[in-house]
Design a protein around this nucleic acid. Sequence first.
DNA 1: CGCCTGATTGATAAGTATCAAGGTCGGTGG
DNA 2: CCACCGACCTTGATACTTATCAATCAGGCG
Lengths: 232, 232
Amino acid sequence: MRSGRSRIVELDEGAKLEALHKCRIFSGLRTADLRVMAALATSVHYVKGAFIFNDGDPAEFFYVAQQGLIKLHKGSSSGKNVTFKIATLGDTLNAAALSLKSHFLSAQAMTDATVLRIPRKGFWAFEAKHPGIAANILRLTAEGLNIEYNRIVDIIGEEVELRVVHSLFTLVNKFGPNLLLKREELANYAGTTTETAIRVLSKLRKKGIVSCSAGRGTIVISDLSKLQNYRS
Amino acid sequence: MRSGRSRIVELDEGAKLEALHKCRIFSGLRTADLRVMAALATSVHYVKGAFIFNDGDPAEFFYVAQQGLIKLHKGSSSGKNVTFKIATLGDTLNAAALSLKSHFLSAQAMTDATVLRIPRKGFWAFEAKHPGIAANILRLTAEGLNIEYNRIVDIIGEEVELRVVHSLFTLVNKFGPNLLLKREELANYAGTTTETAIRVLSKLRKKGIVSCSAGRGTIVISDLSKLQNYRS
DNA sequence: CGCCTGATTGATAAGTATCAAGGTCGGTGG
DNA sequence: CCACCGACCTTGATACTTATCAATCAGGCG
């Protein structure tokens, strides 16, 4: 929230188009259409740790991640923080919030990051000309809802160890076996504490499922199938 | 899942229209349009305890609750069961799942209940003629997503006692101060055990927030403002 | 070299689930 | 009408999971 942590940058159209092309909301659109959207988009760079928007802010823009890692999270009144999604190239930060008035999560750059920012009105005007977009947003939002139902069942029904394993599995499927995450970030993603996450990782290391060779701020999965079939 | 637990019934058009009229997905439509939808809808009656659909089933129909209470829930592999929503007159059972292939929750009649059932294809054909519906579904789904994010933050960040209180508050806002819920049902809704839910209720009774005068299978909230401002 | 951040491990305590044992209500059948 | 039965509610004792607190260690950077 300190100032001077974001700045508008000029991206060439190719880079913008790549991000839009990878964005599932626009799947089915032709490049000619995406160029129109690219013309509406401003690219903005954020330094590591900067907030792109905050939970509760009015949703003025539609955002697509272009470069870097962006954490979508929310804090509780008791001070705990839950990470719901880690966005990368082509992921939307707030597709669902656009239908409501305000953001309901905060978006924070985990690394230096660049996003495309499209004004709300321009986005909806574009959407009105391309009806498939609404269906795509709806499908993605429904998928998101399903993911969160499953997460809740997991949190309530399974023990922490399994939850951490599930979190790792989800992350590996998206990012590959070399995760650029601190222990604390994994813990927030799994909904537990740093120490507990570490204890689980230690156990997994002893079983040969993860290795910590790569040093601080990283987690390396060395045996994906064992991870997938994990039983405590 | 036993047979003979549901049967098609004839509802007069007025009853169908009432349910559709109260359904937020159709807000903005004129009665003349709703008649078209009513003509597509079959009313089906389910006895208490019967399943209307199961988690994982293909989503062939769109459902709107017409009468009775219907629980939308999901079980974990460890046998726990989480209730996500309790639907009544005008609530949709599966608006989000219609965008995907399968149901991701189970729907079960908590009381004898009647639903309107509209074939998937007919629903989408109707939707195509009334673009506002897509926006309504999207808004409702986005709201649902927000609710679940908040629930997760609650589960991870707050202690059970507060969670039960929040659950009661949500339920009271929908159903009024006389809740027709068994202790076990409240527990499933709050994501805890029956015994823990009972202990919290006992505490609330001592504080004069709930009274148990109405007997079994009911919870009566006697002081809503104390409930709202509850601190453990 | 010393500092700061992150990782790790151990000890302890708190919160909840689990297990166990009645208790109460309402309905049913004799 | 009464007794019984089953479903639900309630409370207590205990165990287990996980958070919390505390101490130490390891590596990168100024």
